[in-house]
Simulated assay, not measured.
Amino acid sequence: MTVFAAAMDRIYANPSMAVAAVWISAATSAERPIRVIRRAPDRITEFGAGRFVSDTMMVDVRLSDLPDPRPGDLIVIGSDSFTIQGEPLRDRERLIWTLDLRPS
């Protein structure tokens, strides 16, 4: 295990940084408990001469928790459920998935 992987394990174990969630496969309905770090940055979209600001929901999840997320899978955080939209992206070290979510 690399030092970076060990640091990620500590960050995801910290309740101030990460929260418990459940991943549900759209294809098989399999469920798996995971830990995620939530982010909700604003996104600016340009349309003609206008610019629109919209809310987004993104989460980071370790590959060791979720090896193969797919668009359409569900992520349940507390009582809120979200659908993965778009292709999941991995970080440079191939340790973390970034998932773009939309409310379900």
Rank of each mutant, 00 (worst) to 15 (best):
Pro103Phe: 08
Pro103Val: 10
Arg38Ala: 10
Val61Ser: 04
Met8Val: 09
Asp65Cys: 02
Arg38Met: 08
Arg43Trp: 11
Ser79Glu: 15
Ile84Glu: 05
Ile24Pro: 07
Thr28Ser: 14
Arg94Met: 14
Arg39Ser: 14
Arg94His: 13
Glu46Ala: 15
Leu74Cys: 07
Ala6Arg: 15
Pro33Ser: 10
Met17Arg: 13
Ile37Met: 12
Val76Tyr: 07
Met1Thr: 14
Gly50Pro: 00
Val36Asn: 08
Ile37Gln: 06
Gly78Pro: 03
Asp65Asn: 10
Pro103Gln: 10
Thr45Gln: 12
Pro103Cys: 05
Pro88Glu: 07
Val22Asn: 00
Arg90Leu: 13
Arg38His: 01
Glu93Val: 11
Leu74Gln: 04
Leu63Pro: 04
Pro103Trp: 04
Arg62Lys: 08
Pro33Leu: 03
Arg70Lys: 14
Asp68Ile: 01
Glu87His: 11
Pro41Met: 05
Thr56Arg: 02
Ile77Ser: 06
Arg102His: 10
Glu87Ala: 14
Phe52Ala: 07
Asp9Phe: 06
Ala26Glu: 01
Arg92Thr: 14
Pro88Tyr: 01
Ile34Lys: 06
Ser64Met: 05
Ile11Phe: 02
Thr2Asp: 14
Arg32Asp: 09
Val3Arg: 10
Pro88Asp: 10
Thr83Trp: 05
Ala13Ser: 12
Pro33Ala: 09
Arg38Lys: 11
Leu95Phe: 06
Ser16Thr: 14
Val36Met: 08
Phe4Cys: 04
Ile75Glu: 00
Ala26Ile: 02
Phe47Tyr: 15
Tyr12Cys: 03
Thr83Leu: 14
Leu89Pro: 08
Asp60Ile: 02
Ala49Arg: 15
Arg35Tyr: 06
Pro67Leu: 05
Arg32Lys: 12
Arg92Cys: 06
Gly48Asp: 09
Val36Leu: 02
Ile11Ala: 14
Thr2Val: 05
Thr83Glu: 15
Asp100Ala: 14
Val76Ser: 09
Trp97Glu: 02
Asp9Ser: 13
Phe82Thr: 01
Pro41Gln: 04
Asp80Cys: 03
Ile24Phe: 08
Asp73Trp: 06
Met17Gln: 13
Asp68Val: 04
Ser54His: 12
Ile34Thr: 07
Arg38Ser: 05
Gly72Tyr: 01
Arg35His: 05
Pro33His: 07
Val61Thr: 10
Phe82Gln: 00
